[in-house]
Amino acid sequence: MPDPIKIRATVKGDEGDVRVLLPHPMESGQRRDAAGQLVAAHFIVSVTLSLNGKPVIEGALGTAVSVNPLFAFQLSGVKAGDRLSVAWQDNKGQRGQAESSFVAA
């Protein structure tokens, strides 16, 4: 089982600050292992950030993103207790998802 997604969601006034760490190998398919064999491509292709069940950010990723990507977002109109969820899918069909609540900063 992969490492869990880490989410930090804080709110000050009605401005939310979100940081998301997505544990993933993010292999481009161009690196070689110690034996000289190509390491198969394995990378996140899509990420969705939802607030209280409604998508607010959708993004497409590719091979140029580093291992264990960290993303930061700012959202307006949020309050403590609002639910934030993050979901991703990679090029091999694997998926990850996590949920957290905004807390006062």
Rank of each mutant, 00 (worst) to 15 (best):
S28K: 10
S28L: 14
G29T: 11
Q30A: 08
Q30W: 10
R32N: 01
R32W: 00
D33L: 04
A34K: 11
G36P: 01
G36I: 07
G36N: 03
Q37A: 11
Q37P: 09
L38W: 03
L38Y: 15
V39C: 06
A41S: 13
A41I: 04
H42S: 10
H42T: 04
H42Y: 10
H42A: 03
H42L: 07
I44M: 00
I44L: 03
I44Y: 02
S46I: 00
V47M: 03
T48I: 02
L49E: 11
S50C: 06
L51N: 09
G53K: 01
G53H: 03
G53A: 01
K54H: 13
P55M: 13
G62P: 04
G62V: 00
G62R: 00
V65L: 11
S66R: 14
S66Q: 12
S66K: 15
V67T: 07
V67F: 12
P69F: 02
L70P: 07
F71M: 10
F71N: 09
F71S: 09
F73H: 06
Q74C: 04
L75D: 00
L75W: 04
S76C: 09
S76P: 05
S76R: 12
G77H: 10
K79A: 14
K79G: 14
K79P: 05
G81L: 05
G81M: 05
D82Y: 10
R83V: 14
L84F: 07
L84S: 06
S85T: 14
S85P: 08
S85R: 10
V86N: 15
V86R: 02
V86M: 14
W88I: 01
D90N: 14
D90L: 03
K92S: 09
Q94Y: 11
Q94L: 12
Q94T: 12
R95E: 11
R95N: 15
R95K: 08
R95C: 15
G96L: 04
G96I: 07
G96P: 04
Q97K: 13
E99R: 12
